[in-house]
Design a protein around this nucleic acid. Sequence first.
DNA 1: AATTATCATAAGGTCAACCTTATTATCTTT
DNA 2: AAAGATAATAAGGTTGACCTTATGATAATT
Lengths: 219, 219
Amino acid sequence: MNRSPLSESVEMYLKALVELSDREMVAIGRLADRLGVTAVSANEMVKRLGEQGLVKHTPYKGVALTKKGRDAACNILRRQRLWECFLYDHLKIEWTQLYEYACSLEHATAPEVTEALAAFLGNPQTCPRGNPIPAADGSFAPLNGIPLGELDTGRAATILAVNATATEVIKHLYDRNLLPGHKVTVLEAAPLQGPLTLRVDGKDVALGLALAEYIIVSR
Amino acid sequence: MNRSPLSESVEMYLKALVELSDREMVAIGRLADRLGVTAVSANEMVKRLGEQGLVKHTPYKGVALTKKGRDAACNILRRQRLWECFLYDHLKIEWTQLYEYACSLEHATAPEVTEALAAFLGNPQTCPRGNPIPAADGSFAPLNGIPLGELDTGRAATILAVNATATEVIKHLYDRNLLPGHKVTVLEAAPLQGPLTLRVDGKDVALGLALAEYIIVSR
DNA sequence: AATTATCATAAGGTCAACCTTATTATCTTT
DNA sequence: AAAGATAATAAGGTTGACCTTATGATAATT
């Protein structure tokens, strides 16, 4: 029922929130980091989002999406991921650029176009980056996986999804074959937040913990 | 070589200019009207466009695109019209909504995506609204037609393109079968800028002169 | 030539989304 | 309990793209 057109900025905030919502409460600092804005700016925006009822901010605790906000965010994810499918499967756009290009298109997509696109694509359930595509009503089953950083040493797992958003980060992961469907084993976790040593496709790869957070693997 | 990303607003101005450029010089008033802004705002923007070398403004005479501006504008038209093809042929979007939806997408389309889309569509030459699609290098042959308002009374002609941009106007024309490929005859032109009486698909239709300007017919 | 319409420009205002700098609160950790 | 880290808020600035109101300048019409 909420047909007020959200601004591009607002959409980015909502998307970031839903993508960061492993834990319920998202610290404003993390949000600001992901969006590449200052904490002050993020604070201002969160205030505005709160006024629109999209978000609940508990000072010193964090931000959480409301029902309304989560619905809006799922819709945004749906549009974005449908575009990723189209760009990858039909336009043959490079995997590393999918997020960036789909993100731009997403903001410019009317509901009618979204649904027509979904039908054209045959209502896919998963985007090329491994993430589930929310249904038109906003419902979707989150991935049943854990960040690579939490995988036990020695355990092999399959990559389910790659959630990085910065194209340079995506490229970095792509170059190391850290892609959905590939198998990884954590050989070693260096102390003091040091890098992980991974075994991917028969090669050893060192990966910073921050990067490992972006990779969701099966349990 | 000009890879500075043009703002959405700038793109709208350039597009309006190229679409209005039957005559070389476009009056700022007409430009403002088409974009739905005040003449003062249009003036300000034209000044900025001039500073970027996209446009030449001769006071009290009008605005004209420079080479650089025209190239940029053709690129924009290309993107927009390719999207129209996709939306119509593949997503089965209603004809009356094509312009609006394609316009939004156009602003969000990277060059790489544009070219991939063109390839996917088989490099179409014409969009569903009848307009030619500029080539990747910006070249395109303008339609060899005249506005319906200039067609001699009694002469039959074929509609080549419909150039209206406001969805309500497009709907109005669509409801009267004023669509590319259809035949029209001007039965009568009322005096004092009065409406035209047309024969379209066996029916008589009254059409204001302003609307007739949007319809390009064969000579 | 005079009137009217259009066009240009000046001045000042709004709004969203950013920014910096600085101060104050709270939380966490030692 | 004190210190350091993180978070919130206040104050003020910038930018792009609009807006209104008002005043000149030119063009077109009578």
